[in-house]
Amino acid sequence: MFAYAVRRILQFIPTILAISLIMFMLLNVLPGNAAMMAMDSRKAKDPEMIEQLKKRWGLDKPLYVRYLLYLKDLAHGDLGRSFIRGDEVGALVAARIWPTLKLAFTAMAIAVILGIPLGFFSALKQGTWLDTASMVGAVSGVSVPQFWLGLLLMYFFAVQFRLLPPSGYGDGDIAHLILPSVTLGVGYTALLARTTRAAVIEVLNTDYIRTARAKGLSELLINRKHVLRNTLILVMTTAGLQFGFLIGQTVIVEKLFSWPGLGSLLVDSIFMRDIPVTQGCILVIISVFLLVNLAVDLLYAFVDPRIEYS
């Protein structure tokens, strides 16, 4: 299994290289440039300074030269330096990744703790009012725009009831974490609930469950030993894949809640055409995505002993 993990990690390299090429090309063909954005476009400006900035940032070099230079730095573990901020991209990203991961993992925890049991019981009570109610809730959860949900939560919990701070990171305390992570987690919870329900219903209709019932096993034992374990594979795949999307969705939530994460850094750098920062953020997000998927694959072996990695 260890060998498998190493192999998979090595496979990341070509993936990341391919993505870096596509990303580099896309970012560099975008119209507009950081030098223009750094000088406020509402003001009269000095065209000479803009040219100097472009030169300093290497924007005057041909595209392939810039890409090779970028790869060279990347091979040395150097993500470059932000055009506009002057900071090292590595340091910028490092400072922002923890808040994003904290947000995403909390949202995932909410989803797993609420979503899976909800889907499970809905499936067991299929067709009852409980099932209908929870599935209506799940559909609403998937459909509700995050931006709007965030504002709604802010309105009730910060303005009306004054229970929680409306936004900000505070000193990293839990109170500041609740509203953004719930906003981020609702859609994910709903999705997990629906996936779990579908998976459980499918398993309930299989022959081995009928056999188990015929053997006279108690419902509790069937559910625990057979239904739950067989459902988990599918649920885990969804959860793992969705985690990547969750990281992507933090963009909206972070902006709304002034959360100092990677998502807001990414958006700002795209708008400012700060190419090194944009590249750094995307690379980190992709790496997290790949690692989480690897972790999910490895977890399969624990859940399902039939799966073996060699």
Partner: peptide, 18 residues
């Protein structure tokens, strides 16, 4: 100085007296 680009979020934070 809170970095708050969203008008709606500022509005709510102001109403919450934050």
């Amino acid at each position: 100085y809170r970095i708050m680009p969203e008008g709606a979020a500022r509005d709510l934070a102001f109403r919450a007296k934050d």
